[in-house]
Simulated scan of single mutants.
Amino acid sequence: MKAYTKHYKRHLLPLGERKSTFPFLAYLPALRRLPFGVFFCFWLLLSGFTAFVPLEEDVPHIELSQVQDYIGKEVWIENLFVAQIRDTEKAVFLNINRSYPNQEFALVVFSDFWEAFEGSDLKRLEGKRIRVFGKVLIYKQNNLQVHLKNPTQIEALE
């Protein structure tokens, strides 16, 4: 108990008498014991760091016919026609240009990200033209997909 009291009283000293490499943290002794990663994450949060969708001029805009050339890269894919929206237990699929299993391309929202899309009604996009942002991925053999994690990745054109 005495060691705790001594430790506690050290932080009650005037700021100039305290021994600290970070004097601005002297008033918050608990923060001094946190790892650097916590400070770094807190700094990113306060600095306004946002990485959901980059500025449009930084990312190529392509058509569906060019998708093969951009596998593994982030792009805006323009003028996609949503032919079918298929809902399964694990994911929602927005099939492009043709219905499953003959779709040319698919947009996938996995169940982990359904909460983010709660307010946006994906069903309204069926039969409409859209544009989408994301990394082009290959699923199994030749099935190209973009995984959607945020509603800002998709925009209706009509």
Rank of each mutant, 00 (worst) to 15 (best):
F52N: 07
Q153C: 08
L46D: 01
G37Q: 11
Q153T: 06
M1L: 11
S120P: 00
A156S: 11
K2D: 08
N143P: 00
F36V: 13
H61D: 02
Y139H: 13
P14R: 09
R86L: 15
D87H: 10
L31H: 05
Q68L: 06
R131S: 11
D87A: 00
H7A: 14
I96T: 00
I96M: 04
P35K: 03
P60S: 05
L107S: 03
V109W: 03
P23T: 04
K73D: 15
R10S: 14
F93E: 09
K135W: 00
G16H: 15
E118F: 04
D87C: 01
L28E: 07
K2C: 03
A3L: 06
L107I: 06
R32N: 11
Y8K: 11
S20E: 10
K149F: 03
K90S: 06
K90H: 14
F40T: 07
I96C: 01
P23S: 05
E89W: 01
S65C: 07
P14Y: 09
R33F: 14
S47L: 09
N150D: 15
L45R: 03
V136P: 15
L94K: 03
W43C: 07
Q141T: 11
G134H: 02
Y70M: 11
G119S: 11
P101F: 06
F133S: 02
H61T: 04
T5L: 15
F22Q: 07
A156F: 04
S111M: 05
K128D: 13
L64C: 00
S111T: 09
V108S: 06
Y100E: 01
E89F: 05
S20W: 00
R10Q: 11
L125G: 00
Y139Q: 08
F81V: 02
H7C: 07
E126S: 04
V92Q: 09
L28H: 08
L31M: 15
R129Y: 12
R10W: 05
A51L: 08
V38L: 12
K19D: 15
H61K: 15
F113P: 00
F36A: 14
L55I: 10
V109Q: 01
R86V: 14
E63S: 14
L64H: 09
T152N: 03
P54C: 07
V109F: 06
